[in-house]
Design a protein around this nucleic acid. Structure first.
Lengths: 344, 344
DNA sequence: GAAAGATGTGAATGCGTATTCAAGCCAACG
DNA sequence: CGTTGGCTTGAATACGCATTCACATCTTTC
C-alpha cells in the first residue's frame, strides 16, 4: 500500500515549456496535431523533470486500456509456463501490457478473476480454469471480452481456442495400436478438466471395436511427481504385470512415467514398454526421452486467441461464441516403435 | 485500443441503493465506517448492476497503486520462468497485481522499463537485464523502488538480491578438484552478465595455486541448445581430447552438455566426465541427470526482494543501496563422483 | 437529563490526463 | 485583398472514485 510520491504532472511540464497542459498531452500522443518544434520543447522539458504520463489517469480519461489479463493455472507444467511466456511476448509486441494472475489448481479462481475485472482491461484470457456463470455474466456486464485457452467450455457459451485434443490423441492411439499395444495404461490429469477428458476419449476411440484390448486408467494429477508416484504405486507391489503401452495425457506426466519406469523398474522405452504424451514441451524432445507426442501449436493458438479478443464482447458469447480448434502436430520421437517412416 | 463500454459507476449503484456515492465507496472499502445493513444493500445493488469498482479511478484518486512490475529476461531458462511464477504467486498473495514484462536477451530493455514506469507501480523488479543510469534517475524522480534480482549492479547504486554465485561455484570447484579434475571446461553464459562472470570466477578460485590445472572456456549462450552446440563444435573434430570435468554456469546449459556428451559422443557421466551446473532447476534433478548443482533459494530470494520493495525508494539507491547475498544450497546429485558422504 | 464522545453520512473537491470546442493562425486561393 | 480551409492552440470539462469536512445521529457518562 505504498503511498505514491507526488508525481510530476503534465501541468509542471507545461509550465516549464511555456505551453498549456493539453499541449503536453499531445506531445506524447503519436499522430496528434502539434508542431514538431513545440513537441521537441515539451519533450525536453519532460526529460528534465523526469516526467512520464500517468497511465492510470490517461486510461481513466480516455476510457480505454491497453492491458490484457492472463490467468494461468498449473504453472508447474512447462507447457503453461511456455504459454504464459508466449502471451507476454505477443501482447507486448502490440504495445499492450500483461496483467498476470495465477490460479492454484482447483482453487477459487473466481476471486482472482474478480480482481482482474476490476481493471478496465482490453481482454481476459483464461487458461486451465473454470469460469462460473456468474462471472460470465459479470464480464458481459463490464464489456470485457473473454477467451478460454485450451479449455472446452461447458454449455458452449464462451469463446475459446484449443488444440484438437481428441484427434491428436486418437492419432497416438492408432500409432500404438499399429505398434501392437494390447494392454494399455492411461495416465489421466485433472478428472474434471476438459483437456484430460478429451484426450482420454480420443485415445480410447482408436481402440474401439478392436478385440483383446485392456485399458486401465490411473490418476497422474497432471504433474511430474503425480505421474511418477502413480507408477510406483501401481507397479511397486509384488510381481506387477506391466502394460505394453502407456499414454499420459500430457508430456510432463509422460516424463514422470519414463523416469519411474527406467529408474525404479529398469524398463527400457520403447523396447519394454511404449510411451506417448501430449503437448510437445521442450524437455520431452531432449535426448534422454525423445518422446512421441503431439505438439500443441502454441504460437498459433496464442495469436488466434489474441485475434478473438479483438472482437466485440457480445460476439464472443452465447450463439456467437467462437470455437477455434487447431490441429496438433505429431512429433514422431522414439517412444513408440516402428515410427521410422515418420522421420524426415 | 478497444474503447471501453460505458461502465456502471458508483453513482448508478448509489442511486439504485438510495444512498450517496461515497457510501458505495465505503461499502467496498474493508474497514470503512458504514452500517452492515447499508453495506449489504449496496452490495446487492452492485451485484444487480454488475458493478465493480474501477481500479484505475480508485488508484488515481487514492494516489496509491497495488501493482508490482516484474521484468523478466530469458524465459527460456526454466530458472527464470520458475522465478516469474514465484513472483506472481507471492505478489498475488499480498493482494497486489503483477504487471509482467519480458525482455529478449540484450534487447532494448530501456523501452520496456519506460513502459513499466508509466504505471504508478509500487515497485519494479528487474531480473537479468541492465538498467541504464538514465533510467535509474527516472525511477528516482518517479519515486519507484527498484530492486535488481540476481544481478550484481555496476557502480552499486542500486539495491539487489542475489544468490552467492561466487561462493556457490567455488564449492563446486572444490568438489571437482577433490574428485580429481585437472583438465576442465567451463561453459559460460552471457559474457556481460554478472551472474556468469561471478560463477566463472568463483569456480576458478577453487583451483588457484594448484599445479597442473588446465582450464578452458567456451560460450554456451545461456541456453540448452547453445551449450549443446558448443559441445558438438568443440568435440566434433577428429580425435578430440575430452576434459575431466565440465562446469556449466547454469543448469539448463549443463543439461545441454549432458545430452550432447551422451548422445553424440557416447560418454557416461560421471564415469567418463564429471559435470556440474548452477540454479537447481527441477529438470536437472530428475533421474536421467541427477545433476550436481547449487540451488538458488528462489522462494527466499523472492521474499527478500519483495521485502526490499517496501523500503522508501531513496533507501534503495546510492549509499543506502541494500545488497542481499543469499547462500545457495548444494545439491549433491550424481554427476561428480565420490559425493556419497553428502547424501543424507 | 444534559454534556461529551463515538459513529455514520453526504456535499464538495481532488487525482492527472484526454478530449471537446471555439478561437487563432497562416497559406493558398479566387 | 478578402475568403476559405486546414492546422494549432488553450480554456474548460469529463473520467470514476476516494477523501476531507462539517453535520446529523446515536451512544455513553456523570
Amino acid at each position: 500500500m505504498a503511498r505514491l510520491k507526488t508525481r510530476v504532472t503534465s501541468f509542471d511540464v507545461a509550465k516549464l515549456a511555456g505551453v498549456s497542459q493539453p499541449a503536453v498531452s499531445r506531445a506524447f500522443t503519436p499522430g496528434a496535431s502539434i508542431t514538431k518544434e513545440k513537441r521537441d520543447r515539451i519533450l525536453a522539458a519532460a526529460k528534465e523533470l523526469n516526467y512520464v504520463p500517468n497511465v492510470f489517469a490517461s486510461n481513466l480519461s480516455s476510457n480505454r486500456s491497453n492491458m490484457v489479463a492472463v490467468i494461468s493455472g498449473n504453472l508447474n507444467n512447462p507447457f503453461y509456463s511456455e504459454t504464459l511466456q508466449v502471451f507476454v511476448e505477443s501482447i507486448q509486441r502490440t504495445n499492450r501490457q500483461v496483467l498476470a494472475f495465477s490460479v492454484q489448481d482447483g482453487r477459487d479462481s473466481d476471486d482472482v478473476m474478480m480482481q482482474a475485472m476490476r481493471y478496465p482491461i482490453d481482454g481476459l484470457v483464461v487458461t486451465s480454469a473454470q469460469m462460473s456463470s456468474e462471472l460470465v455474466k459479470l464480464s458481459e456486464g463490464l464489456g470485457i471480452p473473454v477467451v478460454m485457452f485450451n479449455r472446452r467450455v461447458e454449455g458452449s457459451e464462451l469463446s475459446g481456442v484449443q488444440c484438437d485434443n481428441f484427434e491428436g490423441s486418437a492419432i497416438l492411439g492408432r500409432l500404438m495400436n499399429a505398434a501392437g499395444a494390447r494392454r494399455i495404461l492411461i495416465v489421466r490429469g485433472d478428472p474434471q478438466g476438459s483437456t484430460s477428458i478429451d484426450r482420454v476419449q480420443g485415445f480410447r476411440s482408436a481402440f474401439d471395436g478392436i478385440a483383446g484390448i485392456e485399458i486401465e486408467e490411473v490418476d497422474g494429477e497432471s504433474s511430474y511427481s503425480g505421474a511418477r508416484n502413480a507408477m510406483i504405486r501401481r507397479f511397486g507391489g509384488p510381481g506387477p504385470r506391466f502394460p505394453d503401452a502407456i499414454f499420459a495425457v500430457n508430456d510432463i506426466m509422460a516424463i514422470g512415467c519414463a523416469d519411474a519406469l527406467n529408474e525404479n523398474f529398469g524398463l527400457k522405452i520403447p523396447d519394454d514398454i511404449m510411451l506417448a504424451g501430449f503437448d510437445g514441451i521442450r524437455e520431452g524432445q531432449r535426448a534422454p526421452y525423445s518422446l512421441t507426442t503431439v505438439r500443441q501449436p502454441v504460437e498459433r493458438m496464442v495469436s488466434e486467441t489474441l485475434e478473438l479478443l479483438q472482437a466485440a464482447p457480445e460476439n464472443l458469447k452465447g450463439a456467437e461464441a467462437q470455437k477455434r480448434v487447431i490441429p496438433g502436430d505429431l512429433i514422431p520421437g522414439h517412444t513408440i516403435p516402428g515410427m521410422g517412416r515418420w522421420a524426415r
